[in-house]
Nucleic acid binder design. Structure first.
Lengths: 338, 338
DNA sequence: GTGCGACGTCGTAGATGGTCGCCATCGCTC
DNA sequence: GAGCGATGGCGACCATCTACGACGTCGCAC
């Protein structure tokens, strides 16, 4: 691999001049620029980013740490990050933490060691100790999707509470009377906020809140399946379910289908977070759609701004959701069978 | 940020000794090891990977370049790569080329500049000029999913031809008589191989091959939709479709549903490549399941081996598919309506 | 016309953080 | 006392950037 010295020798200039040409600095004789350009061409010279990063003690890489690459919610978000990062001149390193705090920690270590210019993280756990570690090391960080408890850090969220409220209100207004809520673990801010929104909607409509109908579980499909099975075993079955997560909703639906419970005939269903294939599932799922792409874009913008101005006070951006009404929450009593 | 010199000073040893401790080299007095360990702890020392990479002129990063992070086929493959890479001590940089050869080229440039230890690429286009560039720079490369024309390079593929043959044979045996094939662009080896398998199955069963029933299109859902619309407009409609891609199959299905053509009542359907939500789609899609995870693992293993032994002749691994029979290809004539 | 300062241009050299080959030293054993 | 192995330090090196200084030229003022 040709180095800057090889180019310098061939162009009969100093390495400093080559560096200036490469980095587009002013005050270089156009004739020399031309000579250097040609030499680079002839040698197939490609600047060594590693050496450059060392010397400059900064890179143009962002780490994006997400809990699951298989979840379209995150991949769509990543696209938003990517487009904005590209505009700002950064490249992405996508890290799949697999819902595992240790793996997440490993990636944070790597980000620190590799002197990443910034990190965007959707934390796997609640405490977000790794976020603190990044902040202590003065690495620009943006937290997305879930809130990091007690940390003053740039954050981008969706309005989970309002979204859940809208979903629940929709079920109430569609005539459902006994509405359950299947949400994620208590440790996830998204899960508790969605449960809060669900409760609020019930109260606002003068409905009782029955804690037996609220299930805090995991976030995987199986968790939704199991929670639904428990709900069906109750003395008084729910006639609708608000599933506060896309994979949870799939699990709930699969359970209902396995038990031959018709949706929305016997049980209405609303999910949280859009799925790319939602229209193809039968019944088509009513969901609280999140602006995933915009979530990523906003996070990227916050990160750019923090890198440019490290001292600024952290800000939180909250994006609105909107309810996408489909068949799975059709008016109670009007549809029979599925 | 503490450097190796700070640690050395605090532990009253030389930087070299600290380096030896960090890298677990032999022949260091246990007492010194302990002193160094404590000093690192106290200073919160973290080795600078950039400097290390520069000195060693190698890194522990692999670039994985895929055409679409939104496609579960690739994300599942990435998980396979990730697990195997982790075992071999490498981390992943996931690059989303967005089906765009220029973006792909940009990521290849970055991989070269950042001195990545290796690259796994599912090429966006046919010629794979970027793969050649990597090989010229002596960067270990493995190509997955699609074949890079005329390049002697480590490759991991699935047996597309055999898979397509099985899918088509299945439709024939289920009683369908006029089977169409919707496949990707002619430039993709996967698309042409699957079309070949389709043709072979017809011939083996003594059926005529009607070129009007073979559609080379794109790979997105919309391409499948449009192709199906054209097929429906034919004088003599097909009574079954082999859609040689998961997104293509979705498009085909959506088109059929929009036109109120019942599946499998009026038209049978087999897709290629599993979808995580396939069981929830109605009708459940029969698909040629690919060993996506295994694909990634094999690619990672090949890359490890090439890094260890750069001179070895390139090899190609071909993995088998298997047909996952579901409702969408139920026996012709037995099911009416959908 | 000469002198001086400013400015444009380019090269030298040091710095970045860590690694590793080589060599010196030390202690032990025979 | 010689030889050997274990141990640890010195200093070169990786490729690049950049502060500083040197040099030359030009313009302006006296």
């Amino acid at each position: 691999m040709a180095t800057i010295y090889d180019v310098a020798r061939r162009a009969e200039v100093s390495p400093a001049t080559v560096s200036r040409v490469v980095n587009g600095h002013a005050n270089v004789d156009p004739a020399l620029v031309e000579r250097v350009r040609r030499a680079m061409q002839e040698l197939g010279y490609r600047p060594n980013a590693v050496a450059r990063n060392l010397r400059r003690s900064r890179t143009t890489l962002w780490a994006v740490i997400i809990p699951d690459v298989g979840d379209p919610f995150y991949t769509s978000m990543v696209r938003g990050v990517e487009d904005a990062a590209r505009l700002a001149g950064f490249s992405l390193v996508l890290c799949n933490a697999d819902d595992d705090e240790d793996k997440e920690g490993g990636y944070v270590d790597a980000a620190l060691a590799e002197q990443m210019a910034g990190v965007i993280v959707a934390p796997a756990g609640p405490g977000a100790p790794h976020v603190r570690r990044l902040m202590d090391a003065r690495v620009p960080v943006v937290v997305v999707d879930r809130q990091a408890a007690d940390l003053r850090v740039d954050t981008v969220l969706v309005d989970n509470e309002l979204g859940a409220q809208a979903a629940t209100a929709h079920l109430i207004e569609a005539g459902y009377r006994r509405i359950a809520c299947v949400t994620g673990p208590r440790t996830a801010s998204t899960a508790t906020q969605r449960a809060d929104g669900y409760r609020q909607a019930l109260q606002e409509h003068g409905r009782p809140v029955d804690d037996a109908l609220i299930r805090y579980t995991g976030i995987q499909e199986q968790a939704g399946y199991d929670a639904m099975r428990e709900l069906l075993a109750l003395g008084e079955r729910p006639d609708a379910v608000f599933a506060a997560g896309n994979r949870l909703a799939l699990g709930v639906l699969r359970c209902l289908q396995d038990r031959a419970v018709s949706v929305p005939g016997e049980v209405g269903l609303v999910g949280f977070d859009e799925l790319p294939w939602a229209p193809l599932i039968r019944p088509a799922l009513t969901t609280v759609a999140q602006p995933t792409y915009e979530l990523g874009r906003s996070a990227a913008r916050l990160l750019s701004e923090r890198i440019a101005e490290p001292g600024r006070p952290p800000s939180t951006i909250t994006l609105a959701t909107h309810l996408e009404v489909r068949a799975s929450s059709a008016r109670f009593g009007r549809v029979n069978g599925g």
